[in-house]
Design a protein around this nucleic acid. Sequence first.
DNA 1: GATGAATGAGCTTTCATTCAT
DNA 2: TATGAATGAAAGCTCATTCAT
Lengths: 213, 213, 213, 213
Amino acid sequence: MSPRRAAALRDGEQSLREHLIAAAGRLVAARGTAGLTVRDIARAAGVADGVLYNHFADKEELVAYALHAHVRAAEAGLSGAPPAPGEETVAANLRAYLERALALHSAILPAFTGVVGQPKVLARFAGLPNPMGGGHGLRVELADYLRGEQRLGRVRAEARPDAVAVLLVGVCHDLVLGRLLDPSGPAVPEPAPGLVSDVVDTLLHGLAPPAPG
Amino acid sequence: MSPRRAAALRDGEQSLREHLIAAAGRLVAARGTAGLTVRDIARAAGVADGVLYNHFADKEELVAYALHAHVRAAEAGLSGAPPAPGEETVAANLRAYLERALALHSAILPAFTGVVGQPKVLARFAGLPNPMGGGHGLRVELADYLRGEQRLGRVRAEARPDAVAVLLVGVCHDLVLGRLLDPSGPAVPEPAPGLVSDVVDTLLHGLAPPAPG
Amino acid sequence: MSPRRAAALRDGEQSLREHLIAAAGRLVAARGTAGLTVRDIARAAGVADGVLYNHFADKEELVAYALHAHVRAAEAGLSGAPPAPGEETVAANLRAYLERALALHSAILPAFTGVVGQPKVLARFAGLPNPMGGGHGLRVELADYLRGEQRLGRVRAEARPDAVAVLLVGVCHDLVLGRLLDPSGPAVPEPAPGLVSDVVDTLLHGLAPPAPG
Amino acid sequence: MSPRRAAALRDGEQSLREHLIAAAGRLVAARGTAGLTVRDIARAAGVADGVLYNHFADKEELVAYALHAHVRAAEAGLSGAPPAPGEETVAANLRAYLERALALHSAILPAFTGVVGQPKVLARFAGLPNPMGGGHGLRVELADYLRGEQRLGRVRAEARPDAVAVLLVGVCHDLVLGRLLDPSGPAVPEPAPGLVSDVVDTLLHGLAPPAPG
DNA sequence: GATGAATGAGCTTTCATTCAT
DNA sequence: TATGAATGAAAGCTCATTCAT
C-alpha cells in the first residue's frame, strides 16, 4: 500500500510540486510570465487554486522554478551535439553554433523579458541550484570549442573566444528582442536572408584589410 | 477666458500633457514600465488621479509617449558626435561606437523589456511619429560609417556593415540584459575589463588565421 | 449696441440658459436620462463643460428643466385638436384619444423611467412651474370630453370619466413599458392589431351581459 | 476537503450565491436598481467586495437574479388564491384581481423602472428560466378567469378578456408610476377613494348608454 | 495535504463639480 | 460670464493569498 498520489500527476512526475512546476513551465513557454495568474497555473495543472502555497512560499518562487524548468527543457531540446574542434570547417561550425544559440534564445528570451522588473522572481531564480542557465552553458561550449580550434591552428591564436561568445549570443538577443518588440512579425525570428552568413563571415575575417606586404 | 493652469508644471513645461509625459518618462527611466500604475504617475506628477484621461486616451497611450520621450532623452544625452570615416583609427572609432551604443542601451533597454507583452503599449508606440528609436538610428549611423571607411580603404571591401551593426548592438543587448537579470550588480553595466577591446579586436581581425603563403 | 449674445444660440433662443435646456431636452428625447453626462450636454449645446453651473444649481436642475421642455414639446407635437363632444361617434373619439395618449406616452415615458430613483431630479421637477405635465393635461381633456358627452346623452350618466381616463392612460403605460423592457422590439410601440379596437369596445360596452328582461 | 464556508449565510441559505441574490434582492426591493453598486451589495450581504465575481459573471448578472428573486417573492407574497369563475360576483372578483395586481405591481414596478436603460441587465433577465414574471402570469390568470365567466354567461360573450387584462394592469402601472414620480406621497399607492370601484364599474358597464328600446 | 470559496487591497477609468483665467 | 483643464471620489473588476473544511 503506497501512499496516495495526486490525481493530476503526469508520467514521470513524482510529486505535485514537480507537477506544478511542469505546468507553470508550459505556460511560461507558451505565453511568457507577463499575464500569468496563479489561477491560470492551477487550472493548467488541474489542481485547486490554493495548492501551490503548500509547496512554494509564493507565486514568485513557483515562477522562478518554472522559468528554470523552461530553460532546461529548451536546452535539452537542442538537436544533436555541438560541433567539436577539427570537424568540418570553422565557418560551418560557427554557423551551427549561431543557429543553436538562435533556437535556444528564441525559446528562452521571451520568458525572461517578462521577468525583468520582477525582483522577487529574479531573486528566487538566482537562488536556484543552477542559475547559470539562460544560454550560459552555450557560451562556455562555444568558447571551449574555439580554444580547441586555436590549438588545432584553425583559429588565430590571438583571437578572444569569450568575446566571440558575447558577439554570437548578442546577435541572438538582438534578433529575438527585435521580434518581441514588433509583434506583427513571426513568433520565431527568421533573420534576414544572408545575415547569418554575413555574421559568420565577419567573425571569421573581420573588418581590417589585409596587412600590406 | 482661459481655463485653469496646472500648478504642477515645472520649468519649461508648456502643458500638463508635457508634464505628465515627463513625469511618466522619469518613472519609466527609473523603474521601467513593469509595475507602473496611473496612480504612481499622477503622484509623481503631483496631480490628481484622473488628469491623464484629459490628455490621453488611456494609460497605454501615455506610457507609449513616456517611452518615446525617454528614448529621445537618452539619444540626446549621448556625448559628442559619432566618429566620421577617416578620423583617428578604425579601432578607436569602433570602440567609440560600442561605447555609445552601450550607453544608449543601458538607458533604453530596461524600459523596453517591461513593455514586451504589453501589446497595447507597443501598438501605440509604433504609431508615434518616430518609431525609429530604440537604437535603430545608431545602427544606421554605424553601417554608414563603415561604408565610408570602405570607400577610404580602411575597411575590407568585402566586409558587411549591417552584420557588424547587428553584432555591435547585440553585444549591448547581451551586456544590459545580463545586468537586468542579475539586479545585484550595478545598474549601469560595467563590462568585464578588456571585453570591449576584445570585441573590437575580434570585429577587426576575425578568427581566421592569416592565409598561408 | 446690444450686449453680446452667446455664439451657440439657435433661432428663438434668448439666453444660454434656454439653449442649454433645449440641447439637454433633445438628448433626453433621443436617449433618455439614463447615461446622460454633463459633458454630453455641453457638447450637444456647443458650449464649455462648466457653463451649466452658471445657470443651474447642478446637473439635476438642468435635467429637470430638460424633462419639462421635452414634455411640453411632446404635447405640442400632438397632431390636430382633441375631439370635441358631439363630433363623430363616441367610439371614434375614444380611439382618437387613445391614439393621442399613446403617441404622447411613447415620447415621454422613456425619459421618465430613467428619472425614477433620481430623487434630486424628481424634486426639482416637482418644483417647476407646471408639474402637471406627464399626460395630466390629456387626462383632464378626456374627462372633460366625457362629461360633455354625458351632457349630450351619448355616454351613460353614471359613467366615471376620471376612471376612464386612468384606464386609457394606463393602457399607454402598459404598452410603452412593455416595449422598454423588451428592447428587441420596435422603439415606438405598435400595439397588437385589434387591441385598440378591443380596448375601445371594452370601455364602451363593458363586461356585463345585458340585463335580462 | 471542503473549502471555507461563508460566515455571512443566513438561515436557510445554502450558498453564498443564494445569500448574495437575497441581499441584492432586498436592496432592489428597497431602493430599486438605480444607484446600486457592487459595494452596496457586498456591504448589505456582509461579505468582501470581490466575492460576487466568484459566483456571477458580472454585476448585471447578479442584479438580474436579484430582480428575478424579487419578482418571485412578490408573487409568492400575494395573499390567497385568485378568484375562480362562478364564485361571488363578477364585480367582487374584478375588484379582487385589481387589488392583487396593484399589490404585485407596487412591489415589482419600482424595481423594473430602474432597469430600463440597462440593456445588459435586461438581456440577462430575459435569459433566466422564467422570464414570464413581471405580472404576466397575473394577466393570463385574469384573461382565463374572464373566459370562464363567459362560459358561465356572467360576462358578455363579445367581451375581450385580453383587452380587459391590459386595462387592469395598465391601471396598476398608472397608479404606481404616479407615485414613483411623486416621491412625496406614500410608498404603497393608496388609490383615490372610489377609484377602484369606479374602474370596476367602468369595466363592467362601459360608457355606452343602454340601447334604446 | 488538498480544496476552492472568501478576502480585500489595488487596479483602470468615469464624471459631476470647481475655479483660475 | 464663458472657458475647459484640474480635481478626486467612486465605480466595476482582478487576483495573490488565506484558511475552515
